[in-house]
Design a protein around this nucleic acid. Structure first.
Lengths: 151, 151
DNA sequence: GATTATCACCCACTACTACCCACAATATTA
DNA sequence: TAATATTGTGGGTAGTAGTGGGTGATAATC
């Protein structure tokens, strides 16, 4: 089994009647030391899941946000307001509050996406809609961003 | 045996029913220290295989993106979404997820191409079609690019 | 205080996959 | 040329991952 600290990849799982969502075993193995997570509302119509250590880093960083700029304020409020601590059970599942499931329009099926230091949970519906509308990048945006990265 | 860190050359291998693809022994010998790879969706209709160290370079770049700007988030998600860690087995094969095989239209035969710091996996179909259409460079493009290279 | 709802913990089943072994074909060495 | 190692390909199996449901303790409501 490959060991890396960062979360990557996409997984399709089911949410049961108790609001339990499986975390991919790859993700659990990636950070065996992390058993506590913070779930909260994403900026996009999805759910963010932070391992505790990453959440703490963010809490520290939140102090640096501007009180004046609107996106900063929104971000800060979103992150703190809906945040809940969770642990996973013996089967590797976390419990996601119904408010958040509703927000992400998740009913039965969920798409789990690893985004380096956090995990996103989407409904198929929200994700495709997001991709269709605002989600798409223009060629210019894409090239700008790609240029900032690597190669 | 000639020693190079870079992957070059083209190889024709088969993908078995379990989605296993052989990595050319030349490639394995090129970087004996690298046993972990990241397979992901290529920009072109093919599969990218990065040795872990190369992938990490990219991840470092991704870490600098803004959590607040929407294009940044989308870009980041697209990069991580289709990525998976793999190791090769005792026979030197890696497992490629079906989603990616479908994306590259690979069924039984695969074309492995070494592109310096990464490996590309193509289907014969996608490759020839790509060459016919968008793959060809205009003379102007070619000259522009050639000018950027050091000979 | 009685009743209901909620949640953490436990058990059970199925499908998959990581690991193992096998073998033919080619390349390398004696 | 014969012997040996390496390479590419195929398949079987034990362990694990994903899913569903049950139960007792605790909290909430009347």
């Amino acid at each position: 089994m490959v060991e890396t600290r960062n979360y990557i990849g996409e997984f399709h799982y089911t949410v049961d009647s108790k609001g339990r969502v499986n975390l991919p075993s790859k993700f659990r193995n990636a950070r065996v030391d992390e058993t506590v997570f913070v779930v909260t509302r994403g900026l996009d119509p999805c759910i963010y899941v932070y391992p505790l250590s990453e959440w703490n880093k963010m809490e520290n960083g939140l102090g640096n946000l501007s009180q004046l700029r609107r996106p900063d304020r929104t971000f800060l409020r979103n992150m703190t307001r809906y945040a809940t601590h969770t642990t996973y059970d013996a089967q590797g599942r976390i419990i996601v509050p119904k408010v958040l499931l509703d927000y992400a329009k998740i009913v039965k099926k969920a798409i789990i996406i690893g985004v380096l230091n956090k995990i996103e949970i989407w409904s198929h519906e929200s994700l495709t809609e997001y991709e269709k509308s605002t989600g798409n990048l223009t060629d210019m945006e894409y090239n700008d961003l790609a240029g900032e990265i690597y190669l």
